[in-house]
Design a protein around this nucleic acid. Structure first.
Length: 463
RNA sequence: GGCGCCGUAGCCAAGUGGUAAGGCAGCGGACUGCAAAUCCGUUAUUCGGCGGUUCGAAUCCGCCCGGCGCCUCCA
């Protein structure tokens, strides 16, 4: 399996440090507001990666953190006149609701920064002892010059960074590029005791400390949105590798952004769209299909119309599930005609998670299944073959988190079946008025009935 | 200024040296009391433009045009 590594800017073979096991860490969100559709892309992309790695036979340990202490959280807390913790807890709960609504699997661990302050302090102490960090008035900075490889992930060199620095230079720092590991508390700010006085951790140190705590000093995949490449991941590498002297992560994986029109989606531009709003409008699977319809590293432009289209495409697939469910046949052996799709699907996925191509295979598969169905499911063998094919489609789609509802077991409720039978009888009498009344009654019970050459077909309305 | 990405049918989007996947929309047909869906067929002699390399280029190289991201808030 090949995965694009931001560090080397090329696709590399995934060779787990522990054979058969993949340990991955993805930077989560800062919890000071509702998560938006850009976060949804990150969530769906890394959920897809974790799911596919498991599908491919790896044991996966996935860790995603919460940044629950930072300037924005404090500012928000001050605005509302509540403790910072109340803000972070509120939006952690909201985030978890969104993850659930998106159909993303929860990671093995979701550590919060504030639960790991002692580890961070210990890490900072070791950096100071190793002369990679220094203390100034209760603040601690990482000395970038002490770690020559700084810039290796983002492809920057130290001189350029000096020229391009656009932040106000803090005169207390030895070098403008040095970054904070520990920030001394200002009056009224939440703080933790430390050897340097009360304060709180800098942004970057939390991920180093938590990744090491849950995954060890070296692990396989570290990811996040592409905006984290610099400075966040660059700084994580510096502060971690300066101590461990070994590669922090083997592969660096970054997902592309979702733009609003031609602009990036961001709080400061006021053009964000909340995950819950999108799920309400289009459904989680349509959103996932739309997102996976573009390669994860490419830019995506938000469009309600495109997501709506994805919903229509999705119904081509879910319809097959309904048909299989209505048959109620036990799956038989997979017919030869359906045997080749898994290989094409995995070949696409094994090439840096090429979900657009993999989806193309799924749609080819769905056409083959439709053709099989429309040739007539008149024999038990034909029915068992069809059900086996649909089950295979569900298995493959599930590898990227689609068609999670599976083939729903059991027939529609007896009442619905009775009404359908009555309607079929009415149609036999050419009693169209009664037929339409019955269709309306069936609709009331949540089912849609369609007339096909092979008889009535039931679909869960809105399903 | 530095680093990097992108430009493929009406729209979205794979393909990165061997002769253009897939989705949406459209068109023709089958089916049909109506409706909807489904199925079949069909829609790029061509991949922003101009040169070059090659037996062969959407894919490699050069230049140009257009869009975008990052350069210490950011998924």
């Amino acid at each position: 399996m090949k995965i694009y590594n931001t560090m080397t800017r090329s696709k590399e073979e995934l060779v787990p440090l522990v054979p058969g096991e993949v340990r991955m860490y993805s930077c989560g969100v800062t919890v000071y507001d509702l998560s938006h559709v850009g976060h949804a892309r990150m969530l769906i992309v890394f959920d897809m990666i974790a799911r596919y790695l498991r599908f491919a036979g790896y044991r996966v340990t996935f860790v995603r953190n919460f940044t629950d202490i930072d300037d924005k959280i404090i500012r928000r807390a001050n605005q509302e006149g509540v403790p910072a913790r109340e803000i972070s807890e509120r939006y952690i709960a909201a985030f978890r609701e969104d993850v659930l609504a998106l159909g993303a699997l929860p990671p093995e661990a979701e550590p919060k920064a504030t639960d790991h302050v002692p580890e961070m302090i210990g890490h900072i102490e070791r950096l100071i002892a190793a002369r990679h960090a220094y203390v100034v008035d209760g603040d601690v900075y990482f000395e970038v010059r002490s770690f020559p490889p700084y810039g290796k992930l983002s492809g920057k060199n130290l001189e350029e960074l000096l020229v391009g620095a656009r932040v106000e230079v803090d005169e207390r720092k030895r070098d403008p590029r040095d970054f904070a590991l520990w920030k001394s508390a200002k009056p009224g700010e939440p703080s933790w005791p430390s050897p340097w006085g009360p304060g709180r951790p800098g942004w970057h140190i939390e991920c180093s400390a938590m990744a090491m705590r849950y995954l060890g000093e070296s692990f396989d995949i570290h990811g996040g949105g592409e905006d984290l490449i610099f400075p966040h991941h660059e700084c994580e590498i510096a502060q971690t590798e300066a101590l461990t002297r070994k590669p922090f992560a083997r592969l660096w994986v970054h997902n592309g952004f979702i733009n609003m029109g031609k602009e990036k989606m961001s709080k400061s531009l006021g053009n964000t769209l909340a995950i819950r709003e999108v799920v309400k409008r289009h459904g989680a699977e349509a959103l996932r299909l739309w997102i996976l319809g573009t390669h994860y590293r490419h830019l995506l432009e938000w469009s309600d119309e495109r997501v709506e289209e994805a919903g229509r495409a999705l119904s081509r697939l879910t319809r097959l599930l309904d048909d299989a469910a209505a048959l109620g046949a036990a799956p038989g052996t997979l017919p030869d005609a359906f045997a080749g799709f898994a290989g094409r699907f995995t070949a696409a996925m094994n090439d840096d998670f090429n979900t657009p191509q993999a989806l193309g295979v799924l749609f080819d598969f769905s056409r083959a299944l439709s053709e099989h169905r429309d040739r007539g499911l008149t024999t038990p063998a034909a029915r068992a073959g069809f059900t086996a094919g649909v089950a295979e489609l569900v298995r493959l789609a599930g590898a990227i988190g689609l068609l999670q509802r599976g083939i729903e077991a059991g027939a529609p409720p007896a009442e619905v079946e009775r009404l359908v039978a009555e309607r079929t009888a009415a149609r036999g009498r050419r009693d169209w008025k009664r037929s339409d009344e019955l269709r309306a009654a069936i609709q009331q019970l949540g089912w849609a009935v369609e007339d096909t050459a092979n008889g009535p077909r039931l679909t869960r309305a809105g399903g």
